[in-house]
Amino acid sequence: MVFGADKVPEIARGLAKGMRTLKDATNDIKNEITKSAEKNGLDSSITKEIGDNLKKVKDDLEDFTGSVKRKL
Rank of each mutant, 00 (worst) to 15 (best):
M1F: 02
M1Y: 01
V2T: 14
V2R: 03
G4D: 15
G4P: 14
G4L: 09
G4S: 13
A5W: 04
D6V: 05
V8L: 03
V8N: 02
E10N: 11
E10D: 15
I11E: 00
A12E: 15
A12S: 10
R13C: 08
R13G: 12
R13E: 13
R13V: 11
G14I: 00
G14Q: 00
L15E: 01
A16P: 02
A16T: 10
A16E: 14
K17F: 08
K17M: 06
K17Q: 10
K17D: 11
G18T: 03
G18F: 06
M19W: 00
M19E: 05
M19R: 00
T21R: 05
T21M: 07
T21E: 12
L22M: 09
K23H: 08
K23L: 08
D24N: 12
A25D: 15
T26D: 05
T26I: 03
T26L: 03
N27H: 08
N27L: 07
N27C: 04
D28L: 14
D28H: 06
D28M: 08
I29K: 10
I29T: 14
I29S: 13
K30R: 09
N31S: 15
E32C: 09
I33K: 01
I33Y: 00
T34C: 15
T34V: 14
K35D: 11
K35C: 04
S36L: 05
S36T: 05
S36Q: 11
A37K: 03
A37H: 05
A37G: 04
E38K: 15
N40E: 14
N40K: 12
N40A: 14
G41H: 09
G41P: 02
G41R: 04
L42F: 07
L42N: 10
L42I: 12
D43I: 02
D43Q: 04
S45C: 06
S45L: 06
I46D: 10
I46S: 14
I46M: 11
K48D: 13
K48C: 15
E49K: 07
E49G: 08
E49W: 02
E49Y: 04
E49N: 13
E49D: 14
I50P: 01
D52N: 12
D52T: 11
D52G: 08
N53A: 13
N53T: 06
N53H: 12
K55S: 07
K55V: 01
K55W: 02
K56I: 04
K56R: 05
V57F: 01
V57C: 02
K58A: 11
K58Q: 14
D59V: 08
D59E: 14
D60E: 12
D60L: 04
D60M: 07
L61Q: 12
E62K: 13
E62Q: 15
D63A: 13
D63R: 13
D63Q: 11
F64Y: 10
T65V: 12
S67D: 04
S67A: 03
S67Q: 10
V68D: 03
V68N: 00
V68Y: 01
V68R: 00
V68A: 00
K69D: 05
K69R: 10
K69F: 05
K69I: 07
R70E: 08
R70Q: 07
R70H: 07
K71M: 07
L72E: 10
L72F: 09
